[in-house]
Amino acid sequence: MQLKIIDHPFEWDRFVMQHPDASFTHLFGWRRVIASVYQHKPVYLAAVERGRIVALIPLFRFSRPFYPPEWISIPFFDHAGVLAKNQKAGQFLLEKVWKRLGCKNKARLSIRQDTNFDASGVILQGRHPQIFTEKTGLTIALAPGPRRMMATFPAKLRSQINKGIKNGLTWDIGGPRLLPAFYKVFTRNMRDLGSPVHALSFFKTIFSVFPGQAFICVVYHRGMPAAAGFVFRFKNKLVNPWASSLREFRSLNTNMLLYWQMIRLACCLNLDIFDMGRSSKGAATFRFKQQWGPKQTPLSWYSWAGDRYRAPGETLSISPWQRLPLWCANLAGPLVRKHISL
């Protein structure tokens, strides 16, 4: 086996599409999205045997002011770590990556895994990984068609969904034309949570790079956007990385109707799985998602630090941020969000 830099999508995405454990974030197009919007340097590396990829890892040199660099696979998402045909190929890849990127000094190597590859026993030049396991992925197995899917839910859940409709809520599903409505809800909700928001150009670039694979669902109250979700179609899944709702409308069951419409879309597309994204165990979002009866998949984030690496404190919740005027939070948010890898 040998280490190879992959600079074109065909060979890379062919391996991703054929691998049963691949994530949508393994796709080559995210290289362009993250690099062009946030200027983090991408290095897409693969272990190659007899001319064919046997393992790969998408990495970004994540830079923060006043801190040494960190190589992350990949920032802003839950899991896109090593994708390998077997454990041997994955371990070979990590060992070569560590040496190639010079992580033994001040840098750190971090990978975000869900399944396929266990890095807990990988020792890189005497360094054992630090393992973070506080987050879990949540997925729902879909029934064939919306009616059958609705029938799988408990009576209380069905009642809450129907209550949203009786409260006069409406919805729309589409592509880039719904981005202004989505971003209006998303930015307001992130500010209220104390979280710096992603740049509008981040979502625009996703639509540009992945035409026909991304959708937006918006729930309205009297014509005003009250809740919105961003979903991505990958293989037999519909993945929901971002969803938001405005607090003043939640008593109308906007969240329940939003999630049902996203699940309904997945059923109409004849998909098998609705991926609800990550949640911290015991958090409010985790409890909300538990109502839908999802399967839990533990997420393991591994990191190997160099000799003099000083780890930055990272959080998406910044209390003073909640007090900013919305225009100020929207202006400053992407500048700060760029340096938060979560």
Rank of each mutant, 00 (worst) to 15 (best):
K163H: 06
F117Y: 00
D192A: 11
E95N: 12
L157R: 13
A199M: 04
G174I: 07
I131A: 02
V97F: 08
L169N: 05
P144W: 13
V185L: 06
L157I: 03
C103S: 08
M149C: 08
A151L: 11
V97P: 10
R108Y: 01
S110T: 11
A214C: 15
F153K: 05
V97M: 05
G102C: 07
R188A: 15
I140T: 01
F202I: 07
A227G: 11
F210R: 08
A141D: 09
V219M: 06
T170G: 08
T205Y: 02
R108K: 07
L124A: 05
V185R: 01
R191V: 10
F153G: 09
I111W: 00
K96P: 03
K184D: 15
I161W: 02
F182Q: 05
F215Q: 10
D118L: 11
I173F: 11
I216W: 03
F186Q: 04
I140N: 00
G102Y: 11
P146K: 06
I206G: 04
L179P: 13
K163L: 11
K104G: 15
R191L: 12
A226E: 04
L101P: 05
Q130T: 10
I216C: 09
G137D: 10
I165W: 03
V97Y: 10
K184V: 12
I216D: 11
K156N: 15
F207C: 13
I140S: 01
T136N: 10
F207T: 15
P225L: 00
D172R: 14
C103Y: 09
K135I: 14
D114A: 01
P196I: 12
L169Y: 03
R222I: 01
R158L: 05
V185A: 12
L178Q: 03
S195T: 12
C103P: 11
A119L: 01
H128P: 05
D172H: 06
F203M: 06
T139G: 12
H221Y: 12
K184G: 15
V218M: 10
Y220L: 08
E134Y: 02
W98N: 11
A143R: 08
G174H: 01
A181D: 15
L200V: 15
N189T: 14
P154F: 02
S195P: 07
N162H: 10
S208D: 12
R100E: 15
G223I: 03
R147Q: 14
C217W: 06
F210P: 06
S159Y: 15
K184I: 06
V97E: 05
Q160D: 07
S201R: 04
F202H: 10
V122E: 13
A107Y: 14
W98P: 13
A228W: 12
S110G: 01
F132T: 08
K166Q: 11
G145I: 13
A155N: 13
N162K: 07
S208L: 06
S110M: 09
A214H: 03
Y183W: 10
G137H: 09
E134C: 02
C103V: 14
P144D: 06
T205R: 13
D192Q: 07
K166I: 04
T170W: 04
L179F: 06
A155L: 04
H221T: 07
I140W: 02
K135A: 14
D114R: 00
F207W: 06
K166A: 08
I140D: 02
M190V: 05
K96D: 02
R147H: 09
S159Q: 14
P129A: 03
A227V: 07
P176L: 05
